[in-house]
Amino acid sequence: MWVKHMKKLEIKDLFVSVEDKQILKGIDLEVNEGEIHALMGPNGNGKSTLLAAIMGDPSYHVDHGSILYDGQDILSLPVNERSKAGIFLGMQYPQEISGVTNSDFLRAAINVRREKPISLFEFIKTMEKTINDLQMSEDLAHRFVNEGFSGGEKKRNEIVQLEMLKPSLAMLDEIDSGLDVDAIKLVADAIRKIQEETNMAIVIVSHYERFLELVKPTFTHVLVNGKIVMSGNADLYDRIDKEGYDWIYKELNIEKETEETPGFTRVSLGNCAVAETMKGQK
């Protein structure tokens, strides 16, 4: 009997540090094709670090553990090969690339995935449709990548790239921040549509219950002090939205990590762990 091959992300006992500061302290996670996982947790506990480490951000050092995708050890692959293997990271702070237009960038990104380059006609047709779907400005294709974009435009541009590149695993790091109410729905609908079409797996970091309601994760994980301390279904993010994280600390008897090293400041709302770490080392 023919069995459809299912791609799987497998993370085992992952320890990741930045600038000698241990951020992740033993992550285990499995994500199968078609599943949507929400990654939650108070700010500064390592959610963004996990996604960046999977993508291969050189600022992060994997100290221990393994990450397999589709059975392949991706820690041995350069960033571009991870992307070509089907992994996509929608970034919290997308970079501005001056002088490089969105169309040149995306066309090059599509062509590295194909044996025969995409025809200009097909590319323009696809790009116009995607821009239209995301209600972006018509001149997006000719503008430099993210340069002069508002926060919301940058996030929608990440979804334009997602739709054009059609990855098999999309990691979305606070892709909803900076979006207004209408745009949140637009982006969530686009993500759902792409997911239904491609059956891609999604790992999503978000603080907004409304966004998660729209994307409808099948699993929820709570990351505290660099570890996944609790996993569950959609009820879990619903409860976190209503009650916050204090009950998790109490229930699991976890100490909140505060000042650990002289010179490091306590992580505050709106700042990721790495930004705070870097600030502390200045």
Binding site: S59, N80, S83, Q95
Partner: peptide, 25 residues
């Protein structure tokens, strides 16, 4: 910037392809 290269490479472009696109721009 290393972060620019990471961003571009995270879309599948090799370092040489990034160099080409940035130089052209």
């Amino acid at each position: 910037e290393e972060k620019d290269l990471f961003y571009m490479m995270s879309r599948g472009l090799s370092l040489k392809e990034c160099t080409k696109l940035i130089s052209l721009g």
